[in-house]
Simulated assay, not measured.
Amino acid sequence: MRQRSIRIFTALCGLMALTGCGTQTGATPAAPQDGPRTIRAQQVMRLTEVHAQTGMTLLEGPVFDEEGKLLVVDVTAPAGEPKVLRVDVRKKTSQQVHTDERGTYTSAQFSPYDGRLYLTDFSHGAILSLAPDGIDARTFFSGEVDGTPMHPDDLAFDREGNLYLSDSRGMSEGEAKGRVVRIDRTGKDATVLADGLSAPNGISFDANYRGLWFSELTQNRISYLLLDGKGSVASRHTAVRVDGGIAQTDSIAVDADGNLYQGLHGRPAMEVYSKHGEHLATVQVPARAAKGLESATNVAITPGGTRAYMTVSGPGGGHLYTFDALAEGIRQSNGG
């Protein structure tokens, strides 16, 4: 979820200033002779329009529910308009799941522990949980971690239901104060796993839950945290440097083969890397359709299938695009 979009949005809202189901083929890949192949995504539907009150729309956090419906958050939706939507991608219809007066929701994930939907509230440093049908809203976590408030951006769960968050703080002051934070599944114990980061954004477990991939928006890099199996970090290193040009690294999803799908803010495209750092593919919106689209923030791959759905936004509205992923979807394929 992108700092500059949220900065504009939260200023308009009077908030704090911020820095920034099957395997059908959904696209036609073209393979160049050398280097990564190009996969052209196809439009499914326009999901949102630019909101008059906030002057923008920004789709994020696609995640499949147990019925195969796709849930999506609209980061910049004002009070009273849908902030979480449930989409029937086959019928191309959507309905409101949740709205409220003040939340700025940047990601969504279902917990394997209690089955509830968890949302990161970037502006207020909180985690909200909902019943799968959108009712029974509860604040799961809020407040400081190690004496400092969070700006939680993206979210991942381990097998036991503990939460891992990219805390994208500090960049409004021009300092790398971002963190990766672990919160136990009760919401009572919060631990900093990594700090000194430059606007950490995307976060996802690898295919085997051995470690965490996370991206840093203002460094255009993806790093890897190897975990020790007890909730602590065994090692950390820079894994991939993304040649994004004017675009910046956004959210991350991982498929069954361990490939990373790196969303971009500043370009309606997504880069795909192997777990060894090989640049495998670029997923992009066709040039004729790209006008008015500025980001491809995130993706969800159908569980057990290869149909992928990418959230794409800009002055032209918020859209869902589809393409054929390189491998099947797993829990980590729901964009964090």
Rank of each mutant, 00 (worst) to 15 (best):
R2N: 14
R2W: 15
I6P: 00
I6Q: 07
T10D: 03
C13A: 15
C13G: 10
M16W: 04
L18I: 14
G22I: 09
P29Q: 11
Q33E: 12
D34H: 07
R37I: 08
A41Y: 03
Q42G: 09
Q43K: 15
V44C: 04
T48D: 00
V50W: 06
H51A: 05
H51D: 07
M56I: 09
L59H: 03
E60R: 04
E60T: 04
P62Y: 01
P62Q: 02
P62D: 00
E67V: 04
E67I: 04
L70G: 03
A79K: 01
K83S: 05
V87G: 00
S94Y: 04
H98V: 14
G103P: 08
G103M: 04
S107K: 02
A108G: 09
Q109H: 06
H124V: 07
I127H: 00
D136W: 08
V145Y: 03
V145R: 01
T148H: 07
M150L: 11
H151T: 15
L155M: 13
R159S: 13
L163F: 12
L163C: 10
R169A: 12
G170A: 08
E175Y: 10
I183Q: 02
D184S: 07
R185I: 01
V192N: 03
V192S: 04
L193V: 05
L193E: 00
S198D: 09
I203Y: 06
D206K: 07
A207F: 07
Y209N: 11
L212C: 10
L212I: 06
W213P: 05
N220G: 09
L225I: 09
L226R: 15
D228R: 08
G231M: 06
A234D: 04
A239C: 10
G244K: 09
D250T: 15
D250G: 06
D250W: 10
S251M: 11
D255P: 10
D255T: 07
L260M: 15
H265L: 12
G266V: 13
S274D: 08
Q284S: 11
A287K: 15
R288H: 12
A289G: 04
K291A: 15
L293W: 03
T297V: 14
T297E: 03
N298Y: 05
V299L: 08
P303V: 06
R307S: 14
M310N: 06
G316L: 06
Y321P: 05
F323Y: 08
L326G: 04
Q332S: 13
N334Q: 09
N334W: 10
G336N: 04
